[in-house]
Design a protein around this nucleic acid. Sequence first.
DNA 1: CTCTTGACTGAGG
DNA 2: GCCTCAGCCAAGA
Length: 109
Amino acid sequence: MKPETLNFFDKVYQVAKKIPFGRVTSYGAIAKYLGAAKSARMVGYAMNGSHGKDIPAHRVVNRKGLLTGKHHFDGTNLMQQLLESEGIQVIENQIQDLETVYWDPSVEL
DNA sequence: CTCTTGACTGAGG
DNA sequence: GCCTCAGCCAAGA
């Protein structure tokens, strides 16, 4: 296993944990912040192993603000419930007012 | 080792 | 704005 790969996963977790309450970000934004803009998929893959950890994966969505990873949560609408609990309006698996709640680690971190 | 799959994204039509 | 294609890279079969 490449140390750098583990480091990448670890960084993803670190950034995900730092996402402010009531904010969201995209896989690409995190990937870019980590210097691997072309590995956005890896971010999502990394989140796949975020279960059991203190990772607010529900605050990470794709660039369109679509909850593409909601199927990885237990219930069918758990991810949406969590986001709405933070004051984020979600309709049809899509975050509303994305520009308002969007959080870019490469800018605000 | 090869092939497929996937929580993605940007570019082109 | 929507649809399609190609690039990306790791894990599992």
